[in-house]
Simulated scan of single mutants.
Amino acid sequence: MIRTSFVASALLLALCGSVSAADNPALKKCMDTANTTADMVGCNVKETKVQDKRLNVAYKTALAAQQGARKQQLQDVQRLWIKYRDANCAFAGSATGGTIDQVNGSGCVLDMTQTRAQELENLVGP
């Protein structure tokens, strides 16, 4: 029974982690050498910091490009997005009650932050 749970958790981790790691060599390398749940969470947290910096630059650039009411709208949307990301990932990070939830929750924050950074970058263009 324990072996089956472990295999199922490892498979779930592989499926969830592959979304970010597939396009991110640094994250993939970190995850490939991670031996514990704490290591995997650490990989996600480390890459989230990188993506959060990217998001902040993209947000400032997008905000500076907005005029009038659109500037306030973007500020409001970004505040709501942060609340949504945090609530959504807290939910994702509490699905099973097991340690895999920590990996899933931190992976969710990473994925959503990376996606939002790209969305903000797309507002301004290359």
Rank of each mutant, 00 (worst) to 15 (best):
I82A: 12
I100V: 12
A117P: 07
T115M: 14
V77D: 12
N56R: 12
M31V: 13
A22V: 01
L11W: 12
M1R: 09
R54M: 05
M1Q: 12
N35S: 12
P25H: 07
L123Y: 14
E121N: 15
F6M: 15
G17R: 04
C89S: 04
A21E: 10
G17L: 05
M31R: 03
I100W: 06
M31F: 12
A14R: 07
L110D: 00
I82K: 09
V7H: 08
R85A: 05
K83A: 10
D76A: 06
K46P: 06
V109W: 05
A58V: 05
V41A: 07
C89K: 00
L11G: 10
P126H: 14
A21M: 10
T37Y: 14
L110A: 03
D101V: 01
S94M: 06
L55D: 03
S5T: 02
C89T: 01
N24L: 01
Q67I: 07
Q102I: 01
K71D: 10
G98M: 11
A65T: 14
K49N: 13
Q73Y: 00
P25W: 03
A38R: 08
T115P: 07
T36N: 13
N122H: 11
V103E: 00
A95M: 14
C30Y: 05
A21R: 05
T96E: 00
S94W: 02
N44H: 04
D76L: 02
A26N: 14
A22P: 00
K28H: 13
S18N: 12
L120P: 02
Y59C: 14
G42N: 05
S94A: 13
T33F: 01
F6A: 15
G98E: 08
G107E: 04
V103W: 03
A65S: 15
L13C: 06
T115V: 11
A87E: 11
T96K: 07
A69R: 12
V124H: 08
T4A: 12
Q102F: 06
K83T: 14
T61S: 01
A21V: 07
R116W: 04
L11K: 11
V124P: 08
L27F: 03
D32C: 03
